[in-house]
Design a protein around this nucleic acid. Structure first.
Lengths: 357, 357
DNA sequence: CTGAAAGCGCTTACAG
DNA sequence: CTGAAAGCGCTTACAG
């Protein structure tokens, strides 16, 4: 009731309680309040009780901004992602949050919405002054836009698909080997005309997957037919268009490998509209294993990323950097896994060459 | 190169650049730096250019904690959610972020992971000292745990299912009317034995949906058979168990309305394992319209929430509170919408009473 | 258009 | 176990 400072006339628009308010109410210094609240140093039990009671009655909520300004440790990790509505991003963030929490850290998330402008100007500006460490999953951002942040004083770890050593701490999901393995699976089913639907190339994922597809074809001595490569832009609609073009070919493919599940779903839709049986007449495979993949009809053969493992390892790596900032940068790649479901099967087409064993 | 302050011996572990560093480099005061960077007051063009260049070369990133401590406006909104891995939460956050951004605000997200302990002790402590306003989507949290936060000096708006006026600013999704409408749809298809699979009750959603179901039955003069109410706990597995029990009944239902899609998916799985045709022999309806619903086979009849609209309205309401904190609290309810797909159809069972027109 | 002073709310480092 | 002083990096309010 008598909490107003000298100059405040009206208490209706009261501001948040501070350690000073608590100190006054409990009859101690603000330092004792700080220690009692955080447990950073021993405080007499009676004093602690008084402070806690005062804090509660004043609805005290610590001001993290103030704490961070002075303290070296905030107990908060930051995660910058492009778009939470991609299910895998949500899973990455979810698992990382849990891992952070298990270590006593909170997590704050910022989305950039894949806006390059925003990412360039803005990446980390919200979180870097606030967190003890930063996780960054910005597949579309160019490395140079992350340099400034990396040179700041907050340790950071990247989650993405970039190839090559670039001085960043990084946990990467394999794309090439998964694409190689799923293409080989199609080859083993007797397919020889296997199309590839590509996504946008700047993130590195699509080129990696295309490379895996090529390498598998090459290993099987199947020449690459340029006609069988189409662009689908990583969208369902793009997958539809690409699949329609492929099926209109004089010599259409007997199998389609799309660089992501969304495009595979588009391809499946086109096929079923045309009365083409999957996998009887056409096998379709995707990449990513998004949640709907298992629920499709037929369920989609695809490649799964170990997202949970990826983010756990990223958090672990981040903690290592936080403990020892001078440690050399490191890059880990985790293997993906082919999930064979019902959208792929033996090649039945008369057109296909049937000399596979 | 000569950026180290007097006491720093070693520049290898350099700390982040501050306005002072920029000021020194540009030969101006820190106030001029602040003004040039933020555009809060006129600065000579030549001066501004020098400052911007110095900032760039020093990889300057503003320290939001410091800014917030003094400034009344941070340009950041906070969103506290229980779990981003629920697709609808991700959508809520996504749409709200876009709305915020359209108004020139950034958004920071905190997850509480449905940990009551964490929510009680922690809600808002991370974000309240940092943001200009707070959005809160914590369906499982008790109102009293939000009181302290509401009494702080940060305007906030809740997104949830609570009923009743409680002094909070709130945007709510309808559950009752959607459940009523979908049950009526089943009645119109000739169903009389319509089961209800309930979820956990503390969030208020399941009881609301049950009430809608009851009201529709009552309107159609169909008595409620207690045998047809089962608990599924909002999980797929719970839905399986509940559906199995229902189908084992001497007089089984011809339609099942599950309080959410996950339980409906479980029910569909049990039915198809038993060779029961959907919707030929059994109609199944869910609630929520999660992304997989449209991709199921058959696609799921369900009720859709206007999530995008909900969060847009919440952001709008928040901006109103930020402008005028004294404004009276307000509660908006937005209507849900029945989406009829292929998992529901006319009642064919011999057991069902066939006197619907 | 620019600057010197003060302070936001907290915690570190130093005393007792 | 407790406290007085100083300062984190920024911006407000006041001067010029």
């Amino acid at each position: 009731m008598k909490k107003s400072t000298s100059k405040t006339k009206d208490a209706t628009q009261q501001s948040a309680a501070t350690v000073i308010d608590i100190a006054r109410k409990a009859g101690v210094s603000s330092m004792t309040v700080s220690r009692a609240l955080n447990g950073t140093a021993p405080v007499a039990e009676a004093t602690r009780a008084k402070v806690l009671e005062a804090a509660r009655s004043l609805n005290y909520v610590v001001n993290l901004s103030a704490r961070r300004l002075k303290a070296t440790h905030t107990g908060v990790l930051g995660f910058v992602v492009s778009d939470l509505q991609f299910p895998y991003m949500a899973e990455l963030v979810g698992t990382a949050s849990e891992a952070a929490r298990a270590a006593g850290y909170d997590m704050l998330v910022q989305t950039t919405w894949s806006d390059p402008q925003r990412e360039r100007l803005h990446v980390g500006s919200l979180l870097s002054g606030l967190c003890d460490g930063l996780l960054i999953a910005l597949p579309n951002t160019e490395p140079k836009h992350l340099r400034a942040l990396a040179q700041g004083n907050v340790p950071m770890v990247l989650l993405n698909y970039w190839r090559g050593r670039n001085g960043f701490n990084m946990v990467r999901a394999d794309s090439h080997d998964g694409a190689f393995a799923i293409t080989r699976h199609l080859l083993e089913q007797g397919h020889r005309r296997i199309a590839f639907i590509a996504g946008t190339s700047h993130t590195g994922q699509s080129p990696e997957r295309e490379r895996g597809w090529r390498d598998a074809l090459e290993e099987a001595h199947v020449p690459v037919d340029p006609e069988l490569i189409r662009f689908g832009g990583f969208t369902e609609e793009g997958g539809r268009r690409a699949a329609a073009e492929l099926l209109d070919l004089a010599n259409p493919p007997t199998a389609i490998f799309a660089a992501n599940d969304l495009m595979a779903i588009g391809a499946m839709a086109v096929a079923s509209e045309r009365g083409i049986d999957i996998p009887g007449q056409l096998s379709i495979a995707g990449f990513d294993d998004i949640p709907v993949a298992r629920h499709l009809n037929p369920s989609l053969t695809t490649v799964s990323h170990p997202f949970a493992e990826l983010s756990k390892r990223a958090v672990q790596m981040l903690f290592e950097r936080m403990t020892d900032p001078k440690r050399e940068s490191q890059c880990i790649e985790l293997p993906s896994q082919v999930i064979i479901r019902n959208s792929t099967g033996p090649c039945q087409s008369q057109r296909s060459i049937r000399k596979v064993k």
